[in-house]
Design a protein around this nucleic acid. Structure first.
Length: 483
RNA sequence: GGGCCCGUAGCUCAGCUCGGUAGAGCAUCUGGCUUUUAACCAGGUGGCCGGGGGUUCGAAUCCCCUCGGGCCCGCCA
Protein backbone atom coordinates (compact mmCIF):
# COMPACT_ATOMS: atom_id res chain seq x y z
CA UNK A 1 0.00 0.00 0.00
CA UNK A 2 1.51 3.33 -1.07
CA UNK A 3 1.93 6.03 1.55
CA UNK A 4 -0.67 8.75 1.64
CA UNK A 5 0.24 11.92 -0.20
CA UNK A 6 -0.59 14.15 2.76
CA UNK A 7 1.76 12.06 4.89
CA UNK A 8 4.64 12.39 2.43
CA UNK A 9 4.03 16.13 1.94
CA UNK A 10 4.07 16.74 5.67
CA UNK A 11 7.16 14.64 6.29
CA UNK A 12 8.95 16.98 3.88
CA UNK A 13 7.71 19.98 5.82
CA UNK A 14 8.99 18.45 9.04
CA UNK A 15 12.43 18.02 7.49
CA UNK A 16 12.38 21.64 6.35
CA UNK A 17 11.32 22.84 9.79
CA UNK A 18 14.11 20.85 11.43
CA UNK A 19 16.66 22.21 9.00
CA UNK A 20 15.57 25.69 10.11
CA UNK A 21 16.10 24.68 13.74
CA UNK A 22 12.38 24.51 14.50
CA UNK A 23 11.12 21.60 16.59
CA UNK A 24 7.77 20.39 15.19
CA UNK A 25 7.00 18.87 18.61
CA UNK A 26 8.19 21.41 21.19
CA UNK A 27 7.84 20.84 24.92
CA UNK A 28 5.91 23.80 26.16
CA UNK A 29 3.80 26.78 25.29
CA UNK A 30 2.18 28.79 28.05
CA UNK A 31 -1.54 29.27 27.59
CA UNK A 32 -3.51 31.70 29.73
CA UNK A 33 -7.01 31.14 28.38
CA UNK A 34 -9.06 28.42 26.75
CA UNK A 35 -11.08 28.69 23.57
CA UNK A 36 -14.10 27.64 25.57
CA UNK A 37 -13.73 30.49 28.08
CA UNK A 38 -13.41 33.08 25.34
CA UNK A 39 -16.34 31.77 23.32
CA UNK A 40 -18.56 31.51 26.39
CA UNK A 41 -17.78 35.04 27.67
CA UNK A 42 -16.53 37.08 24.72
CA UNK A 43 -17.25 40.42 26.41
CA UNK A 44 -14.82 39.61 29.21
CA UNK A 45 -12.04 39.06 26.71
CA UNK A 46 -12.78 41.64 24.01
CA UNK A 47 -9.69 43.65 23.15
CA UNK A 48 -7.51 41.66 25.54
CA UNK A 49 -4.33 39.82 24.65
CA UNK A 50 -4.56 36.04 25.09
CA UNK A 51 -2.47 32.93 24.58
CA UNK A 52 -4.46 29.89 23.55
CA UNK A 53 -3.87 26.56 21.90
CA UNK A 54 -5.90 24.18 19.79
CA UNK A 55 -6.17 22.22 16.59
CA UNK A 56 -6.39 23.96 13.22
CA UNK A 57 -9.64 22.75 11.66
CA UNK A 58 -9.86 25.04 8.65
CA UNK A 59 -7.81 27.64 6.76
CA UNK A 60 -9.08 30.27 4.36
CA UNK A 61 -6.56 32.58 2.70
CA UNK A 62 -7.31 35.74 0.74
CA UNK A 63 -3.99 37.01 -0.44
CA UNK A 64 -2.52 39.09 2.36
CA UNK A 65 -5.14 38.19 4.90
CA UNK A 66 -6.30 34.81 6.11
CA UNK A 67 -8.69 33.08 8.46
CA UNK A 68 -8.57 29.81 10.28
CA UNK A 69 -10.59 27.82 12.78
CA UNK A 70 -8.86 26.78 15.98
CA UNK A 71 -10.64 24.13 18.00
CA UNK A 72 -10.37 22.42 21.38
CA UNK A 73 -12.86 20.75 23.69
CA UNK A 74 -15.53 21.03 20.98
CA UNK A 75 -15.28 24.81 21.02
CA UNK A 76 -13.98 26.78 18.05
CA UNK A 77 -12.64 30.26 17.56
CA UNK A 78 -11.53 32.01 14.40
CA UNK A 79 -7.92 32.94 13.80
CA UNK A 80 -7.39 36.21 11.96
CA UNK A 81 -4.05 36.39 10.17
CA UNK A 82 -2.82 39.62 8.60
CA UNK A 83 0.33 40.12 6.58
CA UNK A 84 0.66 43.66 7.91
CA UNK A 85 0.78 42.24 11.47
CA UNK A 86 2.79 39.06 10.93
CA UNK A 87 5.05 40.21 8.04
CA UNK A 88 7.35 37.29 7.05
CA UNK A 89 5.69 35.04 9.58
CA UNK A 90 2.51 35.28 7.51
CA UNK A 91 4.17 33.37 4.69
CA UNK A 92 5.71 30.97 7.17
CA UNK A 93 2.27 30.23 8.61
CA UNK A 94 0.84 29.76 5.14
CA UNK A 95 3.58 27.35 4.18
CA UNK A 96 4.09 25.33 7.35
CA UNK A 97 0.85 25.33 9.31
CA UNK A 98 -1.56 22.76 7.94
CA UNK A 99 -5.05 21.79 8.77
CA UNK A 100 -5.01 19.33 11.69
CA UNK A 101 -1.84 20.79 13.24
CA UNK A 102 -2.03 21.74 16.89
CA UNK A 103 -0.71 25.25 17.43
CA UNK A 104 -0.42 27.90 20.10
CA UNK A 105 -1.24 31.50 19.25
CA UNK A 106 -0.89 34.81 21.02
CA UNK A 107 -2.96 37.79 19.96
CA UNK A 108 -5.88 40.10 20.64
CA UNK A 109 -9.51 39.09 20.95
CA UNK A 110 -11.35 41.04 18.24
CA UNK A 111 -14.39 40.93 16.02
CA UNK A 112 -14.00 40.99 12.25
CA UNK A 113 -16.11 43.13 9.93
CA UNK A 114 -18.57 40.25 9.66
CA UNK A 115 -18.78 40.19 13.47
CA UNK A 116 -16.98 36.88 13.94
CA UNK A 117 -15.20 36.52 17.27
CA UNK A 118 -11.53 36.08 16.37
CA UNK A 119 -7.96 36.15 17.59
CA UNK A 120 -5.89 38.66 15.66
CA UNK A 121 -2.73 36.58 15.67
CA UNK A 122 0.54 38.27 16.60
CA UNK A 123 2.66 35.23 17.39
CA UNK A 124 2.20 31.54 16.89
CA UNK A 125 4.02 28.26 17.43
CA UNK A 126 3.51 24.79 16.00
CA UNK A 127 2.98 22.52 19.01
CA UNK A 128 2.22 19.28 17.22
CA UNK A 129 2.74 18.80 13.53
CA UNK A 130 0.02 16.48 12.23
CA UNK A 131 1.07 14.05 9.52
CA UNK A 132 -2.42 13.39 8.24
CA UNK A 133 -5.00 15.72 6.87
CA UNK A 134 -8.34 15.27 8.60
CA UNK A 135 -11.36 13.75 6.86
CA UNK A 136 -13.49 16.37 5.25
CA UNK A 137 -15.06 18.62 7.84
CA UNK A 138 -18.21 19.37 5.88
CA UNK A 139 -19.22 15.82 5.02
CA UNK A 140 -17.87 14.69 8.35
CA UNK A 141 -16.77 11.16 9.08
CA UNK A 142 -19.70 8.87 8.38
CA UNK A 143 -18.06 5.52 7.71
CA UNK A 144 -19.22 3.56 10.74
CA UNK A 145 -16.25 1.26 10.79
CA UNK A 146 -13.72 4.12 10.77
CA UNK A 147 -15.77 5.91 13.42
CA UNK A 148 -15.43 2.94 15.78
CA UNK A 149 -11.88 1.94 14.88
CA UNK A 150 -10.54 5.50 15.10
CA UNK A 151 -12.92 6.96 17.62
CA UNK A 152 -10.70 10.02 18.12
CA UNK A 153 -11.47 11.06 14.55
CA UNK A 154 -15.16 10.52 15.21
CA UNK A 155 -14.99 12.75 18.27
CA UNK A 156 -12.81 15.35 16.58
CA UNK A 157 -15.10 15.73 13.57
CA UNK A 158 -18.56 14.92 14.90
CA UNK A 159 -19.56 17.40 17.58
CA UNK A 160 -22.54 15.38 18.75
CA UNK A 161 -20.33 12.35 19.32
CA UNK A 162 -17.95 14.48 21.35
CA UNK A 163 -20.89 15.66 23.46
CA UNK A 164 -22.20 12.12 24.03
CA UNK A 165 -18.91 11.06 25.56
CA UNK A 166 -18.64 14.27 27.56
CA UNK A 167 -22.08 13.48 28.98
CA UNK A 168 -21.13 9.89 29.71
CA UNK A 169 -18.16 11.11 31.73
CA UNK A 170 -20.42 13.58 33.56
CA UNK A 171 -22.93 10.80 34.31
CA UNK A 172 -20.29 8.65 36.01
CA UNK A 173 -18.95 11.61 37.98
CA UNK A 174 -22.44 12.64 39.03
CA UNK A 175 -23.29 9.11 40.20
CA UNK A 176 -20.20 9.13 42.42
CA UNK A 177 -21.11 12.52 43.90
CA UNK A 178 -24.71 11.41 44.48
CA UNK A 179 -23.70 8.25 46.34
CA UNK A 180 -20.87 9.95 48.19
CA UNK A 181 -23.33 12.52 49.52
CA UNK A 182 -25.41 9.65 50.92
CA UNK A 183 -22.42 8.08 52.66
CA UNK A 184 -21.67 5.23 50.27
CA UNK A 185 -18.12 3.93 49.86
CA UNK A 186 -16.74 2.79 46.52
CA UNK A 187 -14.77 -0.45 46.38
CA UNK A 188 -12.86 -2.29 43.71
CA UNK A 189 -13.56 -6.01 43.81
CA UNK A 190 -11.74 -8.66 41.77
CA UNK A 191 -12.19 -8.78 38.02
CA UNK A 192 -10.26 -12.06 37.79
CA UNK A 193 -12.32 -14.61 39.69
CA UNK A 194 -11.88 -18.36 40.30
CA UNK A 195 -15.67 -18.77 40.42
CA UNK A 196 -17.94 -16.36 38.57
CA UNK A 197 -21.38 -15.44 39.76
CA UNK A 198 -24.06 -12.87 40.29
CA UNK A 199 -25.71 -13.26 36.91
CA UNK A 200 -26.69 -15.78 34.28
CA UNK A 201 -24.11 -15.45 31.52
CA UNK A 202 -21.30 -17.15 29.66
CA UNK A 203 -17.92 -15.97 30.96
CA UNK A 204 -14.57 -15.22 29.39
CA UNK A 205 -11.95 -17.70 30.55
CA UNK A 206 -8.35 -16.72 31.22
CA UNK A 207 -5.35 -18.28 32.88
CA UNK A 208 -3.29 -17.11 35.84
CA UNK A 209 0.22 -18.38 35.18
CA UNK A 210 1.54 -17.80 38.69
CA UNK A 211 -0.85 -20.34 40.20
CA UNK A 212 -1.52 -22.30 37.01
CA UNK A 213 -5.29 -22.04 37.25
CA UNK A 214 -8.03 -20.99 34.87
CA UNK A 215 -9.83 -17.90 36.07
CA UNK A 216 -12.86 -16.07 34.78
CA UNK A 217 -13.41 -12.42 33.97
CA UNK A 218 -16.24 -11.37 36.22
CA UNK A 219 -19.79 -11.32 34.90
CA UNK A 220 -20.92 -9.19 37.86
CA UNK A 221 -19.59 -7.72 41.11
CA UNK A 222 -22.40 -8.96 43.30
CA UNK A 223 -20.92 -11.76 45.39
CA UNK A 224 -17.82 -9.79 46.35
CA UNK A 225 -19.73 -6.63 47.23
CA UNK A 226 -22.01 -8.67 49.47
CA UNK A 227 -18.92 -9.96 51.30
CA UNK A 228 -18.28 -6.28 52.12
CA UNK A 229 -21.70 -6.14 53.78
CA UNK A 230 -20.62 -9.14 55.84
CA UNK A 231 -17.46 -7.21 56.70
CA UNK A 232 -19.53 -4.46 58.24
CA UNK A 233 -19.67 -1.73 55.61
CA UNK A 234 -23.34 -0.72 55.45
CA UNK A 235 -23.30 1.21 52.14
CA UNK A 236 -21.09 0.02 49.30
CA UNK A 237 -20.93 0.36 45.55
CA UNK A 238 -18.66 -0.34 42.64
CA UNK A 239 -18.50 1.08 39.13
CA UNK A 240 -16.63 -1.18 36.78
CA UNK A 241 -16.50 -3.39 33.75
CA UNK A 242 -18.25 -6.73 33.56
CA UNK A 243 -17.57 -9.25 30.81
CA UNK A 244 -20.04 -11.59 29.19
CA UNK A 245 -19.00 -13.82 26.34
CA UNK A 246 -22.18 -13.44 24.36
CA UNK A 247 -23.37 -11.86 21.17
CA UNK A 248 -23.05 -8.27 20.14
CA UNK A 249 -25.92 -6.06 19.03
CA UNK A 250 -27.34 -2.57 19.49
CA UNK A 251 -27.84 -3.18 23.23
CA UNK A 252 -24.96 -5.54 24.09
CA UNK A 253 -21.19 -5.27 24.10
CA UNK A 254 -19.09 -8.11 25.57
CA UNK A 255 -17.46 -5.70 28.01
CA UNK A 256 -19.78 -3.19 29.57
CA UNK A 257 -19.90 -0.93 32.58
CA UNK A 258 -22.11 -1.58 35.53
CA UNK A 259 -22.70 0.04 38.86
CA UNK A 260 -23.81 -2.19 41.69
CA UNK A 261 -25.04 -0.67 44.94
CA UNK A 262 -25.74 -2.51 48.20
CA UNK A 263 -27.19 -1.05 51.36
CA UNK A 264 -27.67 -2.86 54.65
CA UNK A 265 -31.06 -2.86 56.40
CA UNK A 266 -32.91 -1.88 53.23
CA UNK A 267 -35.14 -3.83 50.86
CA UNK A 268 -36.07 -3.76 47.20
CA UNK A 269 -38.59 -0.96 47.75
CA UNK A 270 -35.82 1.24 49.08
CA UNK A 271 -33.58 0.30 46.18
CA UNK A 272 -36.28 1.21 43.66
CA UNK A 273 -36.59 4.58 45.33
CA UNK A 274 -32.81 5.05 45.26
CA UNK A 275 -32.67 4.06 41.59
CA UNK A 276 -35.51 6.38 40.63
CA UNK A 277 -34.02 9.31 42.53
CA UNK A 278 -30.56 8.70 41.09
CA UNK A 279 -31.73 8.57 37.48
CA UNK A 280 -33.96 11.62 37.86
CA UNK A 281 -31.02 13.45 39.44
CA UNK A 282 -28.78 12.48 36.54
CA UNK A 283 -31.27 13.60 33.92
CA UNK A 284 -31.67 16.94 35.62
CA UNK A 285 -27.91 17.45 36.04
CA UNK A 286 -26.87 16.23 32.60
CA UNK A 287 -29.75 17.42 30.42
CA UNK A 288 -31.51 19.92 32.67
CA UNK A 289 -34.74 18.09 31.88
CA UNK A 290 -36.69 14.98 32.82
CA UNK A 291 -37.85 14.51 29.25
CA UNK A 292 -35.85 12.61 26.63
CA UNK A 293 -36.58 11.94 22.98
CA UNK A 294 -35.10 8.81 21.46
CA UNK A 295 -36.12 8.30 17.87
CA UNK A 296 -39.91 8.39 17.84
CA UNK A 297 -40.20 7.79 21.58
CA UNK A 298 -40.85 10.68 23.94
CA UNK A 299 -39.79 9.53 27.38
CA UNK A 300 -40.99 11.26 30.52
CA UNK A 301 -38.93 10.54 33.62
CA UNK A 302 -40.98 12.78 35.88
CA UNK A 303 -43.68 11.69 38.35
CA UNK A 304 -43.66 8.50 40.35
CA UNK A 305 -42.54 5.62 38.18
CA UNK A 306 -45.01 2.87 37.42
CA UNK A 307 -44.69 -0.50 39.17
CA UNK A 308 -46.01 -3.60 37.41
CA UNK A 309 -46.27 -7.00 39.07
CA UNK A 310 -44.94 -9.56 36.63
CA UNK A 311 -47.51 -12.30 37.22
CA UNK A 312 -50.44 -9.87 37.37
CA UNK A 313 -49.42 -8.42 34.03
CA UNK A 314 -49.26 -11.90 32.53
CA UNK A 315 -52.68 -12.65 33.94
CA UNK A 316 -54.15 -9.47 32.47
CA UNK A 317 -52.78 -10.58 29.12
CA UNK A 318 -54.59 -13.90 29.35
CA UNK A 319 -51.78 -16.05 30.76
CA UNK A 320 -52.97 -16.88 34.28
CA UNK A 321 -49.98 -18.26 36.21
CA UNK A 322 -52.35 -19.82 38.74
CA UNK A 323 -54.24 -21.99 36.26
CA UNK A 324 -52.05 -22.42 33.17
CA UNK A 325 -50.56 -25.91 32.76
CA UNK A 326 -46.93 -26.63 31.98
CA UNK A 327 -47.97 -28.02 28.59
CA UNK A 328 -49.76 -24.79 27.76
CA UNK A 329 -46.68 -22.79 28.78
CA UNK A 330 -44.49 -24.97 26.58
CA UNK A 331 -46.82 -24.30 23.64
CA UNK A 332 -46.49 -20.58 24.23
CA UNK A 333 -42.70 -20.88 24.39
CA UNK A 334 -42.83 -22.57 21.01
CA UNK A 335 -45.15 -19.89 19.64
CA UNK A 336 -42.71 -17.14 20.67
CA UNK A 337 -39.71 -19.23 19.60
CA UNK A 338 -38.15 -19.23 23.07
CA UNK A 339 -35.69 -22.06 23.67
CA UNK A 340 -34.92 -23.39 27.13
CA UNK A 341 -32.20 -25.99 27.75
CA UNK A 342 -34.15 -27.25 30.76
CA UNK A 343 -37.78 -26.37 31.46
CA UNK A 344 -38.36 -24.55 34.74
CA UNK A 345 -41.86 -23.15 35.19
CA UNK A 346 -40.87 -19.89 36.87
CA UNK A 347 -38.13 -19.17 34.35
CA UNK A 348 -40.47 -19.99 31.48
CA UNK A 349 -43.03 -17.49 32.77
CA UNK A 350 -40.31 -14.87 33.16
CA UNK A 351 -39.10 -15.43 29.62
CA UNK A 352 -42.64 -15.19 28.26
CA UNK A 353 -43.09 -11.93 30.10
CA UNK A 354 -39.84 -10.55 28.73
CA UNK A 355 -40.75 -11.56 25.20
CA UNK A 356 -44.26 -10.12 25.29
CA UNK A 357 -43.97 -7.01 27.44
CA UNK A 358 -40.41 -5.74 27.94
CA UNK A 359 -40.27 -3.71 24.74
CA UNK A 360 -43.58 -2.01 25.57
CA UNK A 361 -42.25 -0.18 28.64
CA UNK A 362 -41.19 3.13 27.11
CA UNK A 363 -41.66 5.37 30.14
CA UNK A 364 -39.77 4.12 33.19
CA UNK A 365 -41.43 1.05 34.62
CA UNK A 366 -40.42 -1.19 37.49
CA UNK A 367 -41.41 -4.79 36.94
CA UNK A 368 -41.58 -6.45 40.35
CA UNK A 369 -42.06 -9.78 42.11
CA UNK A 370 -40.48 -12.35 39.83
CA UNK A 371 -41.02 -16.11 40.02
CA UNK A 372 -38.75 -17.72 42.58
CA UNK A 373 -36.62 -19.61 40.04
CA UNK A 374 -35.67 -16.49 38.04
CA UNK A 375 -32.66 -15.84 40.27
CA UNK A 376 -30.91 -17.78 43.05
CA UNK A 377 -29.56 -14.72 44.90
CA UNK A 378 -32.79 -13.02 45.89
CA UNK A 379 -34.82 -13.24 49.06
CA UNK A 380 -38.21 -14.95 48.89
CA UNK A 381 -41.18 -12.62 48.81
CA UNK A 382 -42.46 -11.84 52.31
CA UNK A 383 -46.05 -12.65 51.24
CA UNK A 384 -45.54 -15.47 48.74
CA UNK A 385 -42.74 -18.08 48.79
CA UNK A 386 -43.23 -18.74 45.07
CA UNK A 387 -41.97 -15.25 44.34
CA UNK A 388 -38.80 -13.29 45.04
CA UNK A 389 -38.48 -9.62 45.92
CA UNK A 390 -36.86 -8.66 42.67
CA UNK A 391 -37.36 -5.71 40.35
CA UNK A 392 -36.14 -4.75 36.93
CA UNK A 393 -36.36 -1.25 35.53
CA UNK A 394 -37.23 -0.70 31.89
CA UNK A 395 -36.91 2.56 29.95
CA UNK A 396 -37.42 2.86 26.20
CA UNK A 397 -38.12 -0.86 26.08
CA UNK A 398 -34.73 -1.93 27.38
CA UNK A 399 -33.61 -3.17 30.75
CA UNK A 400 -31.75 -0.50 32.68
CA UNK A 401 -31.50 -1.91 36.20
CA UNK A 402 -32.02 -5.07 38.20
CA UNK A 403 -32.31 -5.22 41.96
CA UNK A 404 -33.59 -7.16 44.89
CA UNK A 405 -33.93 -7.72 48.55
CA UNK A 406 -30.77 -9.73 48.98
CA UNK A 407 -30.90 -13.35 50.07
CA UNK A 408 -28.88 -13.68 53.29
CA UNK A 409 -30.01 -17.13 54.45
CA UNK A 410 -26.94 -19.38 53.96
CA UNK A 411 -28.98 -22.60 54.03
CA UNK A 412 -31.38 -21.40 51.35
CA UNK A 413 -28.53 -19.90 49.33
CA UNK A 414 -26.76 -23.25 49.22
CA UNK A 415 -29.99 -24.98 48.17
CA UNK A 416 -30.52 -22.49 45.34
CA UNK A 417 -26.92 -22.84 44.19
CA UNK A 418 -27.38 -26.60 44.07
CA UNK A 419 -30.43 -26.14 41.84
CA UNK A 420 -28.31 -24.03 39.48
CA UNK A 421 -25.70 -26.76 39.35
CA UNK A 422 -28.41 -29.25 38.37
CA UNK A 423 -29.57 -26.98 35.58
CA UNK A 424 -26.02 -26.70 34.33
CA UNK A 425 -25.82 -30.50 34.19
CA UNK A 426 -29.01 -30.41 32.11
CA UNK A 427 -27.21 -28.19 29.60
CA UNK A 428 -27.94 -24.64 30.69
CA UNK A 429 -24.65 -22.88 29.98
CA UNK A 430 -25.83 -19.77 31.78
CA UNK A 431 -26.75 -21.48 35.05
CA UNK A 432 -24.75 -20.07 37.93
CA UNK A 433 -21.81 -21.70 39.62
CA UNK A 434 -21.91 -22.71 43.25
CA UNK A 435 -19.72 -20.29 45.20
CA UNK A 436 -18.87 -22.11 48.45
CA UNK A 437 -16.70 -19.25 49.70
CA UNK A 438 -19.69 -16.96 49.40
CA UNK A 439 -21.83 -19.40 51.39
CA UNK A 440 -19.11 -19.38 54.06
CA UNK A 441 -19.44 -15.61 54.22
CA UNK A 442 -23.22 -15.83 54.57
CA UNK A 443 -22.77 -18.31 57.43
CA UNK A 444 -20.84 -15.61 59.26
CA UNK A 445 -23.89 -13.45 58.67
CA UNK A 446 -24.77 -10.78 56.11
CA UNK A 447 -27.13 -8.05 57.27
CA UNK A 448 -30.47 -7.92 55.50
CA UNK A 449 -29.90 -5.61 52.59
CA UNK A 450 -31.14 -4.22 49.30
CA UNK A 451 -29.07 -4.18 46.16
CA UNK A 452 -29.29 -2.88 42.61
CA UNK A 453 -27.23 -3.02 39.45
CA UNK A 454 -27.59 -0.30 36.85
CA UNK A 455 -26.12 -0.53 33.36
CA UNK A 456 -24.00 2.57 32.86
CA UNK A 457 -23.91 2.12 29.10
CA UNK A 458 -27.66 1.67 29.00
CA UNK A 459 -28.46 4.69 31.17
CA UNK A 460 -25.99 6.68 29.07
CA UNK A 461 -27.95 5.62 25.98
CA UNK A 462 -31.16 6.92 27.53
CA UNK A 463 -29.68 10.23 28.66
CA UNK A 464 -27.91 10.89 25.34
CA UNK A 465 -30.70 9.59 23.10
CA UNK A 466 -28.31 7.03 21.61
CA UNK A 467 -29.92 4.27 19.57
CA UNK A 468 -27.00 1.85 19.83
CA UNK A 469 -24.77 0.93 22.75
CA UNK A 470 -21.83 1.41 20.37
CA UNK A 471 -22.57 5.14 20.38
CA UNK A 472 -21.80 5.35 24.11
CA UNK A 473 -18.85 2.94 24.26
CA UNK A 474 -15.53 4.56 23.46
CA UNK A 475 -14.13 1.55 21.62
CA UNK A 476 -16.86 -1.03 20.99
CA UNK A 477 -15.44 -4.47 20.31
CA UNK A 478 -14.72 -5.14 16.61
CA UNK A 479 -12.92 -7.94 14.84
CA UNK A 480 -9.32 -7.03 13.97
CA UNK A 481 -9.04 -5.81 10.43
CA UNK A 482 -6.94 -7.66 7.88
CA UNK A 483 -7.30 -8.34 4.16
C1' G B 1 -26.36 -19.11 14.89
C1' G B 2 -30.22 -17.31 10.56
C1' G B 3 -31.77 -13.39 6.87
C1' C B 4 -30.90 -8.77 4.18
C1' C B 5 -27.45 -4.84 2.75
C1' C B 6 -22.55 -2.52 2.15
C1' G B 7 -16.87 -2.18 0.90
C1' U B 8 -14.45 2.36 -5.67
C1' A B 9 -9.20 8.69 -4.39
C1' G B 10 -7.64 11.49 2.19
C1' C B 11 -13.47 12.44 2.89
C1' U B 12 -18.64 12.00 0.78
C1' C B 13 -20.29 9.31 -3.26
C1' A B 14 -21.51 7.91 -8.78
C1' G B 15 -20.28 3.89 -12.20
C1' C B 16 -22.23 -2.45 -11.57
C1' U B 17 -28.85 -3.88 -14.23
C1' C B 18 -26.76 -4.50 -19.97
C1' G B 19 -18.42 -6.44 -19.29
C1' G B 20 -14.93 -2.35 -23.53
C1' U B 21 -8.79 2.89 -21.46
C1' A B 22 -11.66 4.32 -13.50
C1' G B 23 -15.37 9.36 -12.57
C1' A B 24 -17.51 13.87 -9.61
C1' G B 25 -17.50 17.31 -5.49
C1' C B 26 -14.52 18.57 -1.50
C1' A B 27 -9.48 18.04 0.55
C1' U B 28 -4.24 18.24 -1.10
C1' C B 29 -0.41 20.76 -4.53
C1' U B 30 0.90 25.47 -7.91
C1' G B 31 -0.56 30.39 -9.17
C1' G B 32 -3.96 34.82 -8.06
C1' C B 33 -6.66 37.64 -4.41
C1' U B 34 -6.26 42.55 2.40
C1' U B 35 -12.60 40.61 6.07
C1' U B 36 -13.55 34.99 5.01
C1' U B 37 -16.29 31.25 7.58
C1' A B 38 -18.45 24.65 2.81
C1' A B 39 -14.33 31.59 0.57
C1' C B 40 -13.62 32.35 -4.67
C1' C B 41 -10.97 31.95 -9.73
C1' A B 42 -7.37 29.10 -12.94
C1' G B 43 -4.34 24.75 -13.45
C1' G B 44 -2.13 20.05 -11.59
C1' U B 45 -1.31 15.48 -8.51
C1' G B 46 -3.93 11.48 -6.57
C1' G B 47 -7.01 4.63 -7.19
C1' C B 48 -4.33 -3.24 -7.69
C1' C B 49 -12.45 -0.55 -7.39
C1' G B 50 -11.51 -4.95 0.60
C1' G B 51 -8.55 -9.83 -0.62
C1' G B 52 -8.17 -14.53 -3.56
C1' G B 53 -9.81 -17.63 -7.51
C1' G B 54 -12.82 -18.40 -11.96
C1' U B 55 -15.60 -17.18 -16.77
C1' U B 56 -14.05 -14.00 -20.95
C1' C B 57 -10.15 -11.53 -26.33
C1' G B 58 -11.35 -8.13 -22.22
C1' A B 59 -13.97 -7.83 -15.22
C1' A B 60 -15.03 -2.32 -10.48
C1' U B 61 -19.16 -4.66 -13.34
C1' C B 62 -20.80 -11.78 -14.13
C1' C B 63 -19.73 -16.50 -10.88
C1' C B 64 -17.34 -18.90 -6.46
C1' C B 65 -14.58 -18.41 -1.94
C1' U B 66 -12.84 -15.23 1.85
C1' C B 67 -12.07 -10.73 5.19
C1' G B 68 -14.30 -6.48 7.42
C1' G B 69 -18.71 -3.56 8.57
C1' G B 70 -24.11 -2.31 9.17
C1' C B 71 -29.34 -3.54 10.06
C1' C B 72 -33.04 -7.17 11.59
C1' C B 73 -34.06 -11.87 14.17
C1' G B 74 -32.44 -15.66 18.13
C1' C B 75 -29.65 -15.61 23.17
C1' C B 76 -28.06 -12.10 26.81
C1' A B 77 -27.76 -6.57 30.64
Amino acid sequence: MPERKDFLDRLKKIDELKSMGINPYPHYFKVNSTIREIVESPDLFMGKNVSIAGRVMALRYHGKVGFGDLSMDNFKIQLFLKYEVLKDNYDFFKKFVDKSDIIGVEGDVVRTEKGELSILVKNFIILTKSLYDLPHAWFGLEDVETRYRQRYLDMLLNKDVFEIFRKRSMIVGEIRRFLDSKGFLEFETPILQPVYGGANAKPFITHVNAIDRNYYLRISDELYLKRLLVAGYPKVFEIGKDFRNEDIDSRHNPEFTMIEIYEAFKDYNDMMELTENLIKHLAQKINGSLKVKIGENEIDLSGEWKKVKLLEKLKEGGVDPNTITDDEIKKLLEKYDIKMPSYVRGIALTKLFEEIYEHTFINPTFVIDYPRESTPLCKLHRNDPNLVERFELFINGIEIANGYTELNDPILQEKFFNEEVERRILGDEEAQQKDTDFIEALRVGMPNAGGVGIGIDRISMILTSAKSIKEVIYYPILAPKND
